[in-house]
Each structure stands twice: as C-alpha cells, then as structure tokens.
Amino acid sequence: MPYIAEISRGNPSCFLFLIDQSGSMRDPFGADPTRRKADGVADAINRLLQNLAIKCAKAEGVRDYYYVGVLGYGHRSGPAFGGALAGRELVPISEVAANPARVDERVRKVEDGTGGLVDQKVKFPIWFDPVANGGTPMCQALTRAHSIVQGFIAEHPDCFPPIVINLTDGEATDGNPTGPAQALQSLASTDGNVLLFNLHLSSQKAAPIEFPDSEENLPDSYAKLLFGISSKLPEYMRGIAEEEGFKTTENTRGFVFNGSLVSVIRFLDIGTRPSNLR
C-alpha cells in the first residue's frame, strides 16, 4: 500500500509549489473583488510555509522533515524565494524557517475575553512576494519540476512521495501541459508516485468545484484537461478531506476549479497536512 512511508529527518519528503505569475494574476478573485489573485496566492504560500515550519519545530530547533521549493512561472520563470534563499530550488524546512526575506507585522482580531474583539499584532514572515507579468509557461514549469523532483527522489529513494501543487489562473501559453505533467507523475519513490495537484483560480463568480471525482460536471475542455493531469488523492488524504466535510471516492482528484481564495487555502491545508511524521 503506497503513501505510508514515515517522514523523518533520515527520510524526508518534499513539497514543490508551482505559481502562475502571468499578467492575469493581477486581476481580482471573482468572489473577492478587493483581492488580487497574485496577492492572495502569495499570502497563502507564505502562511503555508509558516505553518509547515511551526509543525516541524521542536524544542531543539526545526526538524528537516521536508524540503520545500517554490517555482514561479510568467515573464520570468524559476525559483521564487526572496532574500537569502533567492535562486534555491529545494530548501530544507529549517533553513526556510531561519531565512524569511523579511518578517512583517500584521494585525489580527482576537477575542478580548468579554465578548468583544481587539487588535493583536502578529509576526508574518515573508518568503515570497506577488508577481504578475507575462504569459503562462506552465509546460516549462512542469518540466523544471520534473528535474527537481527526480533529483530529490534519487537522493531519497524511499521517501514519502513528493507533492507538487500547481496554482494557475489560465491556460498554458507554451503548449499542452499533459505530456510534462504525466512525466512528472510517472516519477516514483518506493512508496508511490509523485502527486501533482492543480488549483485553478478564478476571476469569475462561479462556485468553486473542489475535489471532483469525474470530469462529467466540469464546464469546459480546459477544466477537463487540468482534471486529467491531477493525481488521485491517496487514502490518508481522502480521510483528511472527509474530515473537512468533502465527500470523496477512490477516483477523487487533487483538483480545484474556479477556486476562491478560501478554497485555495483549504486545499493547501489538506494537501500538505503531514501523515506520518517521526
């Protein structure tokens, strides 16, 4: 049974995020006209990196359960970390934790204990800034992801399979991504094939389609194409999705179409929750 390998410092796993940075990412989300897609995605990725570091933190420091990479694709394509990590493809989570490009202060509302809300300042580390410029060279990004993940698996042949999450708002401008996506999904450790999940962000107000198990109700051929290159959820992840209120079958895929920011954050949480940290 695949996708059961322990994730440990001796046998780490990997997350790679592919971020569409094309010009259309400047447009707002359909469900939230005040929020640019590029900004929402940058916040979601920064928060995810923060949470991952927190999950891996122990009293003696951050344990390297994961290696993490962020690749942007648009006018310029390549590793998208800022600051000291600029140019790095995969970075152990302890180095990610130690090297945010900067730490912003944000304000959040917390309960004041008497039924009201008060502002509380919280630290918000930033590794990745929003960019929106140029076309959508998705094939190029998937091909680069292939080479990065292949290198990781060569070093960690028994790892929990790497998870690649592609966040995009449009069609690839450099060809059909099916071939590069399938090549990426065909890579495998002894514990299973690489998982490729696709999150499509929408400027339309249409309701998001989350975790579909067939292409039947998908609105167009583009949605069907992305569905076709999204991996099925492994059993443990179906369990997490079910806990979060999604109905799943064995054909459920890691795919969101017409995603709102809320659906993107929810998906990232389910798709990156650790299964078996040791």
Partner: peptide, 8 residues
C-alpha cells in the same frame, strides 16, 4: 524563542 516556536 523564535517565531516558529511561539504557537507551539
């Protein structure tokens, strides 16, 4: 204590 330890 670092920021990533505070929530824990």
């Amino acid at each position: 204590v670092q920021w990533y330890e505070e929530p824990g």
